[in-house]
Design a protein around this nucleic acid. Structure first.
Lengths: 210, 210, 210, 210
DNA sequence: CATGAATGAGTCTTCATTCAT
DNA sequence: GATGAATGAAGACTCATTCAT
């Protein structure tokens, strides 16, 4: 995600079975190399090698290194955003406390589904092209959360968008800390419990007096 | 933060006045180049040039590029950690609500003191060498927060360390989102207010029944 | 015209009608790609694509890229050489002035028949393999001109070969300048007239005193 | 001279002694590699190697391969153009016959001063970036010749520019043929004599009747 | 001590050519 | 026969690092 944006779109739509497998192998390989060698060590040759193909083949699917990284990041973000959107849709019109725990749980599940992947992609998201994608995904999720919040029967949010942004990022922070290893052992065990507590406490401050 | 860890320590202890000024210039220049060109565009030559010296001189102060980046990151993290530690010391033995708002305010002030710098260094922290430093700084801050929490007269924390970690990272998340631009306009204005609310709500769940 | 000479001969003699059409399509496509993308942009894939076939098929007709380029150049040179030979045969035993204008006219017509093609092939002729072919074509034409000159009843050439070489290349120079665009607008209009004048003047210096 | 034009300017003006020597070595090496390996074999690594330096150093002086080739070509063309301009200036106001032989002689001398160089650069001039430079040099020379012709006391040129273009290219053709080897042995010996004859005959067709 | 030219390993990317389908 | 995905050698170019001046 270093140089000019250029065209970050994949070269051929992976419709055929073989293409799908190849693209999948590339994504997996990218995550692995990212994990082992870091962003700057994630070279096209290394990714291709790990994916069991030649560099040339990699370039048959992606016009350049940045496009590959962007694709992998995008897929990941899309998965997380989708999961959260789904949870938000499911919990409309429920009490805020239900919303809070559903949101925390759904986000955590999505992010920790493949911790390796989640962690590896932080570096990609930090660079130029990745920031754009991350911003878009955040916006999607914030919109979903805000919509859910607005539907709560027992609370009133004067600025649902801001509250949603705070809520989302209050989850993101601790999860990221855990993934990046800025936490002592045993943190994970209590992570969900604490996140639910955090979010519930925050959202309930918007509860209507009965 | 790309290659082998090697020795990331500065070469000479900056005791003389001139050294101090030079090192300062290098740090400033590094932030600027990082901001304008990104991590991969942050070359030693460019940093030296912007700092008004030759590459050779840069290498008089740092054994390699990674050491320079690490030093800049370290200084930043140290500043933030120090500020939070200070706030925590000051607010020992106070009610949790006071702790909550003090913590949120202090962290926000430290992080937004030079937003440019804060933002630029995320990319550095994301690559290998930086993670280590960030982890250390986090640990320091968590320890300070935990100590403060433990002293609260009106609350009881069964696992102060975990609560501190959650609290810290619940702040980090939204601040980072703001710095990286994953937030709509007008977010900053209400950031502090929301963070205080978030943290207060969370910590008060540990309040003792009177 | 890049690598080792190897075998520059076409793979199959294009006797069948389909082969003929295919080869023709390849030649046309080559000229077009050469014109639009330059010699180094003239890749086998692009040529095949423009010719409406796959790379594999291209290799059915030519063993490698250089062979294709050589064939296209050769065909072009053969056409020009043939036209000039024909003109020379026709004008044997005529006065030098008639020879001069016939030669200039015939050469010009042959070269400007497809200016695009003529121009595109200069780059091919400039690289290694092409020089050989060009030299051969030149030799053929020089021989034809020399033979014609020798038959002139009103002139005597002590070194017909050298004179023929000069004559031919005195035509080539201006035509090439025109094709490559080293000439102001309006040059073409007067090109033939001037070439006839040039050649006539030159050859008449060999006229016998009556 | 293959890809986008970009910046074809040298990177640093070779003012210091060392730079001058380095640039000189690069030019010489370029000609040599061009001669031995052709345009497509003229790689930056090979040129640097032959010049006794590393690729990195080459790139200290030229931003890319095309810029190097352009610089070498430009220097050559400038030398030739300068020589011809000089001759034209010297022979103003002289009879056309004097002009003719002076022009032929001067051009020949300039072009054959370093035949290797002249020959090697044809391929460079044939590619995109080179064509531009060649066109400019041609224009300069044509202007000089036209100015000279106009000053002839014993002739009248209705379209000096076109006549100059024809004259120049009628010289270029045979010289190029010789350099590229499209001529039998012994051609060189009589080249000058024939070129003078050719040009004299052509220009005298514009002589005023006495 | 400062300088900045030189080095060259290491990246990305292209494209001629092959060969399984 | 035709196809076009896969290969991988080779080229352009960068940049961390060193060292002669």
């Amino acid at each position: 995600m270093d140089s000019a944006p250029a065209s970050l779109k994949p070269r051929k739509s992976p419709v055929q079975a073989r293409s799908l497998a190849t693209v999948g192998a590339l994504h997996t390989a990218t995550i692995q190399v990212l994990t082992r060698q870091g962003l700057s060590g994630c070279t096209t040759t290394r990714v291709a090698e790990r994916a069991g193909m030649s560099v040339g083949s990699l370039y048959q699917y992606y016009p350049n290194r940045d496009a590959l990284l962007a694709a992998v990041l995008d897929k990941h973000l899309d998965g997380v955003a989708g999961a959260v959107e789904h949870a938000c849709r499911i919990h409309r019109d429920q009490p805020v406390s239900a919303m809070a725990s559903a949101l925390a749980t759904a986000f955590l599940a999505a992010k920790l589904h493949d911790p390796q992947e989640s962690k590896a992609l932080y570096a990609v998201a930090a660079d130029r092209g990745g920031a754009e994608l991350a911003a878009r995904a955040h916006a999607r999720i914030v919109a979903a959360i805000a919509a859910m919040l607005t539907s709560a029967p027992d609370a009133r949010f004067d600025d649902p968008s801001t509250t949603a942004t705070i809520a989302l990022n209050a989850l993101i922070g601790p999860v990221r800390a855990w993934l990046e290893g800025h936490a002592q052992a045993g943190f994970e065990a209590r992570l969900e419990e604490h996140l639910v507590r955090l979010l519930t406490a925050y959202l309930e401050t918007y509860r209507l007096r009965p």
